[in-house]
Every structure is written in C-alpha cells, then in structure tokens.
Design a binder for these strands. Sequence first.
DNA 1: AAATATAGTTAGGAATCCTAACTATATTTG
DNA 2: CAAATATAGTTAGGATTCCTAACTATATTT
Lengths: 209, 209
Amino acid sequence: MVMKKITSPFNITLQHESIDSQITAALERLGESLRILLSTEAREHGLSPIQAQVIIFLQSHSREKNTLSYLAKEFSLTKATLSDVIKILVEKDLVQKKERPSDARSQVLALTPAGKKIASSCGQFANPLLLPVSHLNQQQKLTLKHSLFTLIHSLYQQRIITIQRMCYTCIHFSPATPFPFCNLLKIDLTEEKLRLDCSEHEENKERKV
Amino acid sequence: MVMKKITSPFNITLQHESIDSQITAALERLGESLRILLSTEAREHGLSPIQAQVIIFLQSHSREKNTLSYLAKEFSLTKATLSDVIKILVEKDLVQKKERPSDARSQVLALTPAGKKIASSCGQFANPLLLPVSHLNQQQKLTLKHSLFTLIHSLYQQRIITIQRMCYTCIHFSPATPFPFCNLLKIDLTEEKLRLDCSEHEENKERKV
DNA sequence: AAATATAGTTAGGAATCCTAACTATATTTG
DNA sequence: CAAATATAGTTAGGATTCCTAACTATATTT
C-alpha cells in the first residue's frame, strides 16, 4: 500500500505500486466498468440500472424469500428506495406482488410473464467478461475463483456485505471433514463445487473468523 | 454460462453454475461492494462519491493531463456532469483550475492545499480488501494480478473501457523481446513490474488483439 | 478565410437514493 | 392476555447524480 517514489537513472519518477494495491485497484476498475455497462445495457431495454438488477435477481432467484426487505438488503439500499423501484416495476407490469399467507405484512415478489420475457433478453446481456474469463486456463480459473471467494468472504466477515449465499456461511457447511462438505446435498465441496450463490443457502449467523 | 438444472437424489434442485459465470458474478459482487463502501466513506468526509473519486484521482495523478475532458473520459461521464462536480469542488476550495498556456480553452485541474489535506485523509480510506489480499500467497497474488490485468485489457479492446494506463496499451511497450520490455524505463516487464496505472503511459491507439 | 473540431458551461429534467414519519401486522413479555 | 416492541412496507420531501441540448470560445484543418 505504500507508494515509494524512486528516481530512475533516466530521471523519470518510478512509482512502485505494491501488488496488493494493484490488485485492489484492478478490482475497483473492473467493478466500475461493469456498473457502467449495466447502466448502458439497462437503458437500451428501457430500464434503469436498479430496475434491471431487480429483474435479473428475481429471474435467477425465484422463491418465497424474495420480499422487498430482502432485496433492500441484497442491494444495500433502504426499503424506501426499493419500494419506489418495485412500484414502478409493478406499474410496468414486469413484477407482481403475491400475498404471503404466513405473514400478512409482507408480499412475495415475482416476475410477471412480461417480466420474464424482458429478464431473459436482459439475461443475454453480453457480459464482456465471459469471453476473456473463458480463455483463462483451468488452473488460473480455480485460483481466481478461490481468491475472489476469499475476498468476498472477508468482506462478509467485516460486515460490509450483509447478504450472500456462499457455502462458507451456510448452516449446511462443514469446514473440513477432511474436505469441506455440504450436509444438505451430501457432497464434497471441492474447489469446483463451492458455490457463490446457492439456492439452498441458509445463513449461519456465527461469522466465525 | 449454461445453467444446468439437475434433480438430486434428495429431490433438491441442483444449480450447476459454470466456473466462468461464478467468476464474473464474484467480480460484480466485489465491485458493487466497493462502490457502496466508497459512497459511505465519502459521505463521512462530507463528499459525494464522485467528488471523492475526483479528489483521490487528482491526488495520485498530479499532472498537466488532468483536464475536465480527461476526467470525464476516465470516469465515463459527460463533460456536463464533470463540469458540475468540479464547480462544486472549486466552490469548496478543494480543487483549483490553472490556466494552460498551450491551450486557452482548457484548464488544468489540481488540488488546493485543503484538497490535498482531505485527499490524504481519504487516501486512508480503510480499504477492506487490502488486508485479505495481503493474506493471499505470492503465487495466488501473481495469478490474480495477471488474470485481472488480462480481463481489463480485454474490456479495453472491446472499447468498454476508454481510458487506462496499463503497460499493454502503451507506446513504450514491446510485447516480447524475449520478455515484455518498457522502452522508456528500459526495464523488463516481469509479472511483478507490469503496471496498471503508469504515470508515463502514452496510449498506443492500435489496440491490436 | 471558412469549416470543423474541441474545451468547457449552462439550463432543464429524469432517475437514484436518502431520512423521517407513518400504517399495519407479528412477536415478545410482564 | 394486554402492552410494548419489532418488522414489513408506504409516502412525502429533498439532495445528488447524471443526462441531453444548446451555447461560447478557442484550435485546427482545409
């Protein structure tokens, strides 16, 4: 993180950036790019970025859990903000609210047929990272996945991310017996099988370090 | 990228996410977290996120090139948007505009003493990624750096990123003779030395693939 | 010298996202 | 069981972000 300045024999200031800060800078850069891309693509579909995010999320996570409050946590926004967004999506007939018998205060959010249609065309969002990622070799991919998962887990432990659904933080996860194991699916969680976003995830609130 | 759905012996739907899409999802997740973090931290310093980004950028890139237009490209915003942001920063006496003798239309942006002061306290932005990154082993770091640089370079080639300052896209960069080499600094660009953001960078507009 | 390009500003407006105050239902507790 | 507290969600009002379009002024090209 320290920035050393060295004068080279050619009288040019050499910045020596540590590899750690180069990595964090690269992650920031990629994140920024993806965000700009999302907003551009969303606009082409007549959606705002957050509207698109909600629709894509509902498409890939269809289930009872999807309430307004849950989405607010997912996106780190207030309920008021999400309420506005959902209201517009309901007016556009892309999302519908269904009563939840178990709790009269809350409603389950789901895509309407029109919403599903848009979602699947948004799902085609030509993610410009997929091609270059696919060109990495298998070893690089595994290392990359492992490193990124570690970083996300660390943000979760630092309480910066409040919601996620990765194996490390699931009540069904056994750390090492002798390998990480999923007690629900009864499978060894090799590097390949570890999930970032499991539909069966149930949070283990302990957040052991 | 294909999402296979398999019914497990336990009647639980197994999603098989490809490692490629897990990686892109993880990158999106990290990017989103960093953005939220920036906005939180900026607010604590009485700045908006974009104001903070501008100040941090000016701190680490003090030079003639820093015009309003350059920053607009850097952040993928319009000149109108940047003009507003800069106006406010000038009113707050954090940024100053200096005349540029070579071109009377444009002005060079630089931090005022007050701006530098804020910048260095913002520079302390406890980046929550630095600690977990530092705990990766050297081999993981090198692979991570290499992969992330490759991805950024690919976004540049796809014209999604319009400005950057990494070795691959610099006129002083020789790809392999037999190793990548910087013709300006006269050094071999080993993985360790490759830069993401070099102050001597001059764009090679060819964008060879 | 005229046409075109570039740097930057201004005005007006849509969208994002917040806080605070509120209603209604659930849950906990004395 | 009634009162206190917590949770789901809405509404109103406002600050900020960020855009397009129209504009001025200076540079560059033809």
